[in-house]
Simulated assay, not measured.
Amino acid sequence: MSQKTISEIEGGTGTLRPTPYSGGLTANVVKLGHTAKFTESNGSQAEMLNFSLADATGAILATITDKTQFRQIKEGKTLLIRDFIVKNGKIALSVRTKVMTRPDIVVPDELEEKAIQLILPPSPVKRIGEIITSPQKTITTIQGQVKKIEATRIVRVSGVDTTIRTIYLEQDGNSIDLTLWRELASKDLATGQFLGVSHCLVNEWQGNKSLNSTRNSTIEVIQPLATTMTGDVETLSLQEFSIEVAVKDHSGKYKDFTIDLDLMTILFPNVAEMNDNEKEQYLLSKIPIKVKLTVVGRNVSDIELIDDQESAAEMELVL
């Protein structure tokens, strides 16, 4: 029985046709992926397990559809695989494939990491403003506040009813819709929550970017994010230690925030020596006050005055 290495198998995949290998491959199971359900041509339901393999020469994706052999596919296990097919750059194991355990082999760290990333690709955190300008098919982690949640609905995927739900996330005045698939669509979520969702796929339709969760996506509730916005303070209410303000953003919407009185004193030093009534009248005389705010939830952590030219520039960036 002739043995092949992963690099030799990859070197022979220049053709688009499925290539059968009657020989063997000894490789380590590095990372298990998802199990996909699908309908076969005869109408019967089937499953396919995705995983990655590595040896001393390379790393490659693999699939297996014979459920009787799923238990053999364990992370960290070294296997001898015989009679398989290579198609689309992946190793496909079928009912004809023989899978047996072998003594452990040594896999270089860099190839083990490559095999992990074949199943679980990097998912860097990006702000919504960055995601909107990212290429299609980019994998990213998004963080933002839930502004709207649609009802769940059912779509048909590969002959299987699949649950989806779309939520709308906002950050720094930018928003984007994220469609959650399968079990993520049934998560108990609420508007106002701050979420981090990993391994989202960037899509584009008619010039508008959106996100879809993937089988690697996870959702976690996170602490409120510090975000920035520009706008006009148009109304205010003086409290004992703070000021409640309504800020109109570039879209004309009003948002309410709380500003510590000490922060306003830094902007307007004159108010430090005034009584409450004088402070309120003085600040009202400055309205509309063009500001750039750094906010966490409804609380302002930093505030800057901006002039008309800066305000116009900020609006152009947002738009």
Rank of each mutant, 00 (worst) to 15 (best):
L53P: 06
I73S: 08
K67I: 12
R82V: 10
G76V: 05
Q69F: 06
N88E: 12
F51T: 01
K67E: 14
Q69G: 09
V86A: 15
A62N: 06
R71N: 14
R82E: 15
D83N: 12
E75Q: 07
L49A: 06
A62H: 03
A115H: 00
L53K: 09
F84Y: 05
P121Y: 02
L111P: 01
I81Q: 08
N88K: 13
T97L: 00
T97A: 02
K90I: 09
E110P: 02
V106H: 05
T101K: 14
L79T: 06
N50Y: 10
I64E: 06
R82C: 08
I91E: 08
L80M: 12
R71I: 11
K74F: 09
L79D: 05
L53V: 08
Q69I: 06
P122R: 00
R96L: 08
L93N: 05
R71F: 15
K114S: 03
E113W: 02
G89K: 11
S94G: 05
S52I: 00
R102P: 10
I116L: 03
S94M: 07
L93V: 09
V106P: 07
S94P: 04
F51H: 03
T78R: 03
S52T: 01
L80Y: 14
Q117I: 05
K87R: 11
G89R: 08
T68H: 14
I73P: 07
R82I: 10
L93P: 04
E75W: 06
L79K: 04
L93T: 09
E75N: 06
D66S: 14
D104K: 03
L111D: 02
T101W: 10
K67Y: 15
I64D: 06
I105F: 10
I105T: 11
A115P: 00
L53W: 09
Q72S: 14
V99C: 10
A59D: 05
R71G: 11
M100F: 11
K77R: 11
I116E: 07
S52H: 00
P121W: 01
